[in-house]
Design a protein around this nucleic acid. Structure first.
Lengths: 215, 215
DNA sequence: TTGACATTAAAACAATTGTTTAATACATAT
DNA sequence: ATATGTATTAAACAATTGTTTTAATGTCAA
């Protein structure tokens, strides 16, 4: 079997492999990426993946684990659970969080991109991703939506509204090849991303408040 | 070179290959599907793809062409361009059209699924798909959105609203593996699909009317 | 220094996949 | 009936990819 260091401690090469793999997996998906490209980027030997992580799937799982342990350190979701703030404001914070991490081009930009990809091109690791990363986020959104819709709202309606909101956010990342061809004016720089988050917030707030009025 | 029958006329095997390829491509994507599986399903020899369509990409292009030529025959979009009908009603028709074809489990169910996949896992054929299938649909939606938002709406706002609406629809197909794990209650039978279309219509109508009021 | 152990490196292996070849069957026209 | 061109088949080819093997290198304690 491959080496099982106690935990959390990683050799230099493992670290480089994780970072390189994260980028490539996020950009191309599990199937398309070759371990040879990962190793080339990490300046490691082709056998490094199998030695340190067993096989390609093991590396992928480790990358998700690595992403999870470092998640939320840049965009903490804390403010969204402050029940004292108005729900509309919490919704704006939530949407900004999602949009910003989806379009952050900073160093570990691949994290949320990898999760977004796992959603539409699932692997064996999807169950763990849903349980540990997606479901907690969804529950945050659920409580916000329920607060705006009011106590009269059915579970089904809350669910559909959640999906409407998150669907708007993810569409801008998933459909980017099409959006760029369809709307060349549409850019996703820091300024536009802020406007995008504002739009989705206003769009959804109006929708939720309309539904709350029973329309 | 491979045979270039005049046009439109197809041999029996070509037809079977197109149907089989459409299903598999739509279900698994271009990269994951093997020509061997297509040929097995079509009860054809492994060499059939290369003989009739040149190579795997040629088959894929032919499948898209085939899908395009048979598109809209089941769910015509005609009513959406009747400028006499109220814009809200046209929006409802449009959304129902998109949702129904995305979740139609009938015989040629793979058509819109294939297009949905091409949007998030683009191939060399994406330019043609956008130009011939996606852009016309987007323009329908644009005129509807503009009618509801009013003449004062900016192009950018119209664009963002279009993306919000279509994003809601596509999310339910693209993210289905996650949705099923997150919300096991959520089903997509004929009845639920109708409710889903109604929800997205109401959600979006409320949003657009709110934005039209300047909120 | 020596020995034990973890890591790296080069090469080869085995399986898959898209593609091609060469032979065969079949139809149609001369 | 013969010839011609199309379609199908089985087999093999060539390239890629994940993985394994075997040897070499480095590190650190005894």
């Amino acid at each position: 079997m491959y080496p099982r260091k106690s935990t959390a401690v990683c050799t230099e090469t493992q670290q480089r492999l994780l970072e390189a793999a994260g980028e490539v997996f996020a950009a191309q998906g599990f199937q398309k990426t070759t371990v040879r490209e990962i190793c080339r980027r990490a300046r490691a030997n082709v056998a490094a993946v199998n030695y340190h992580f067993g096989d390609k799937e093991g590396l992928y799982a480790a990358v998700l684990e690595y992403a999870h342990s470092h998640a939320l350190e840049k965009y903490p979701l804390l403010q969204t659970e402050d029940e004292d703030l108005p729900a509309e404001q919490r919704l704006g914070t939530f949407i900004r969080h999602v949009i910003f991490s989806l379009f952050d081009e900073g160093a570990p930009a691949w994290r949320s991109k990898l999760m977004a990809r796992e959603m539409i091109e699932p692997t064996a690791a999807l169950d763990a991703v849903v349980a540990r990363m997606i479901r907690p986020t969804a529950q945050r959104l659920e409580s916000i939506v329920r607060a705006i819709l009011g106590a009269a709202a059915s579970d089904a309606q809350v669910r559909l509204c959640q999906l409407s909101i998150i669907g708007q956010c993810l569409h801008h990342r998933h459909a980017q090849p099409v959006i760029q061809r369809l709307f060349p004016q549409q850019h996703y720089g820091p300024e536009e991303v802020k406007l995008l988050a504002d739009h989705i917030t206003r769009f959804s707030c109006n929708a939720l408040k309309g539904l709350a009025r029973g329309q």
